[in-house]
């Protein structure tokens, strides 16, 4: 893992790069979020007020300012996925994980989120877990995926 200083230094000291920097900092965090320290370091590096950086980070749905699980599940519920039953998948995930949308499991393994179309509708219904796309989802498939993720640790 890179140090935060190394991450910052790999970008020009230019406020244009704030989103790129936030991506890099968040990707570096095992709990997939931006810590108050990340925000502060980014603000100092770019010579911007902390509140400004926070304002930018909070605008974009890929960033989180509070800790999430190791695996962030983003289930798509846009019309093409909705048509083929994403809503029942959501219920299923909520039941399996015993959490609601926006929450994280107590073991800090999974966070459940809804997202707009991920651009993989050819394999609807679809979701992403961190950087990976999973399509043609069924209850069985979800069981397998969750098991596999649990087994990874």
């Amino acid at each position: 893992m890179k140090t935060k200083e190394e991450i910052l230094k790999s970008f020009p000291k230019n406020p244009d790069y704030i989103i790129e920097i936030l991506h890099a900092l968040q990707d570096n965090n095992p709990y997939n979020y931006l810590t108050p320290e990340d925000i502060k370091l980014c603000a100092e590096y770019l010579d911007l007020p902390v509140s400004y950086v926070e304002g930018v980070a909070s605008f974009y749905s890929m960033f989180s300012l509070k800790p999430r699980g190791r695996y962030v599940i983003r289930l798509c519920d846009s019309p093409p996925c909705h048509l083929v039953g994403s809503e029942s998948l959501l219920e299923y995930l909520e039941k399996k994980l015993k959490i609601k949308v926006g929450e994280t499991t107590p073991d800090r393994l999974f966070t459940l989120e809804l997202t707009s179309c991920l651009g993989v509708c050819a394999v609807a219904p679809a979701m992403m877990i961190n950087d990976e796309v999973y399509g043609n989802l069924t209850f069985e498939k979800i069981d397998k995926i969750l098991e596999e993720k649990r087994g990874n640790l």
Partner: peptide, 26 residues
């Protein structure tokens, strides 16, 4: 290459430009 961060509105060209400038995509 610049990356978006999950905001449909940033497809609107002026919001996209704001985002490229490191701002909220409004």
């Amino acid at each position: 290459v610049r990356k978006g961060a999950g905001a449909y509105i940033c497809g609107e060209e002026t919001a996209l430009i704001e985002s490229l400038e490191g701002k909220r995509g409004v």
